[in-house]
Design a protein around this nucleic acid. Sequence first.
DNA 1: AAAGATTGATGGATCAATCTTA
DNA 2: TAAGATTGATCCATCAATCTTT
Lengths: 154, 154
Amino acid sequence: VGKIPTETVVSAWANMLLAQRLALSSIERALKGAALPPLAWYDALWEIERAGAPGVRPFELERRIRLAQYNLSRLLDRLQRAGYVKRAASRDDGRGHVVAITASGRELRRRMWSVYAPAIQEAIGERLSPAEVKALDRLLRALVRHSAGAGGDG
Amino acid sequence: VGKIPTETVVSAWANMLLAQRLALSSIERALKGAALPPLAWYDALWEIERAGAPGVRPFELERRIRLAQYNLSRLLDRLQRAGYVKRAASRDDGRGHVVAITASGRELRRRMWSVYAPAIQEAIGERLSPAEVKALDRLLRALVRHSAGAGGDG
DNA sequence: AAAGATTGATGGATCAATCTTA
DNA sequence: TAAGATTGATCCATCAATCTTT
């Protein structure tokens, strides 16, 4: 039997949904306005770029960006078709492969950040004082920390 | 030219994305586990129920739950087909209509809440102290407040 | 049998165009 | 012309099934 949340807990949840929806839609609008791909591409490219030259296994990516396996599979298809990543058979494990970013992928990631970063600043940085941002970061971190184990999508 | 966010601003944003993704997927999992429809149905039913007997215009709903017009139009189609809402021509305005909840719609909303509420408690209430929840609510409210005007989806 | 990954089918979200009345 | 609302086409997300290698 689950416990009932207080009014404040429900309010915090509702405001989190709303705040994120507002921020996300303004960020996506900014990206589209600059003729750039959606945010999901950024997340994937960023993690793949961080993995460097050896590349990264899809199942690793899956955990880092919290995307279901089949979902990631098709996102990688699109990124590959557009020339932003390359797939190569894994030496260690015959079942899988490794994904690496290309030069144009790095370039796209950089261009996306030049739009994404100011949009984050506008949605968060300009609406709270530095101390408030720090407090918010701390509270959200606490929410994430305790659920490290729990599933993402699958 | 947009300003660059600080590290803390970016961190807060990333943790917000992650925290919400984790909470949402556990909530959706709980609903599915109880053979109930997705969260979007709850939001719509709740606002329609709040509107009471006279019903509510879709363009009003659109603003309250922040859903694009075409998106809402199809969600209402599904709710209507399932018998949870009714549409009727508007007396005041020949262009539009009003939407009202049915008895089985109210019943579904109530059943969904009995799963949704404990899931919110688990995701937020049990991970922060009451004082922390209050602080989080206040900060998120500030993020929302300043963007009251800005667009939702369309 | 389980892990890594993909695929066919289906439903939902989005864009652009459309329709009706204000 | 603009507001309220819907629809056809298309793209993405999701489910279930499948394939290969461990």
